[in-house]
Design a protein around this nucleic acid. Structure first.
Lengths: 169, 169
DNA sequence: TATTGTTATACTCTATAACTATA
DNA sequence: TATAGTTATAGAGTATAACAATA
């Protein structure tokens, strides 16, 4: 009978802030700096968003990937590891480690499934639910901080333009 | 006398495409999907940009970080490893491996510095210069593809709004 | 046979600490 | 003493391959 592996550190790099991702880093800066290009502007805005996202996470001890895993588990009452791997687009063993880490942090638990002993359901613990509630509140503030310098109309306009950029052309 | 370490693979994951970075992945999707939020729109646009960036790199065998290193070396005639580490905001040993990889790929060479035998200059090889020229051409196309569905006015507007988002508030 | 989870292994990127050679 | 580069080591994240238990 499979037992969850336990050898995963409980406090990941979520606590240590992951080096503010300089805009030069992803190959956009040196080419685009002079042109006021869309690519560079998008990159800079994304760097800012990333910084604010980590400020938002603060002392919760979560990484972005774990935030996503947590919210996927919170949302889907039928979540298991294979499904999580598919949702996150990661390999099975990676999902396993992710769940191990969330379990070690006391946020998630594995529940037996009646009638199928191969798998188990993933669910939030009480601590996990509290953390999710914290996250929901902070995400709302975070969204406001991103758009802090824009009027409602400008913000709507920006979202509209970004959606058109995001569409597969 | 220090000799450059040579044990670095020449063809990195630049060839293997790095898994298209699903928008769910960085903790933005599950919270924001319903709101049409700026955070989510920004994230989606960035995912699209990332995809196009890798399409652009194509068969050049480069990663985004190596593109940046290459362009930094191309731009600064006085580049060395410590300076490169500072520019990329990475640790010294990481910069070393980066340079080793670029050297193994035949794009960059280490040149002796008259009067200071501790360091050497980093410079592009002939192959490196050819690659950079290719990159410049492709970057121009890339920029156009990002904004393909926008008019000139819309694009300028979008850049303006993004710059305001990117500003530290 | 197929599915779920697991183990073993390896590779990349990153970091810190301690070292060498040189200034 | 300080600087440039290097080595050794470690940790997080990713992957593939092979496996056990169960369906």
């Amino acid at each position: 009978m499979p037992a969850a592996s336990k050898k995963v550190s409980a406090a990941p790099r979520g606590s240590r802030r992951p080096r503010a991702a300089a805009p030069e880093e992803d190959g956009l800066a040196r080419f685009d700096l002079q042109t006021g290009s869309l690519g560079y502007a998008l990159r800079l805005a994304q760097v800012r968003m990333y910084t604010l996202f980590f400020d938002m996470l603060g002392d919760l001890g979560l990484t972005p990937a774990r935030v996503t895993a947590l919210s996927l588990i919170a949302t889907d009452p039928d979540m298991n590891q294979t499904k999580l791997a598919r949702s996150l687009d990661i390999a099975g063993p990676s999902a396993l480690k992710m769940v191990d880490a969330l379990e070690a942090a006391g946020l998630v638990c594995r529940l037996d499934v009646a009638g199928d002993r191969r798998r188990y359901l993933l669910a939030l613990t009480a601590t996990g639910r509290t953390t999710m509630e914290q996250l929901r509140l902070r995400m709302a503030e975070y969204e406001e901080r991103i758009a802090a310098d824009l009027s409602a109309a400008e913000r709507a306009q920006l979202v509209g333009l970004l959606n058109r950029v995001a569409q597969r052309g």
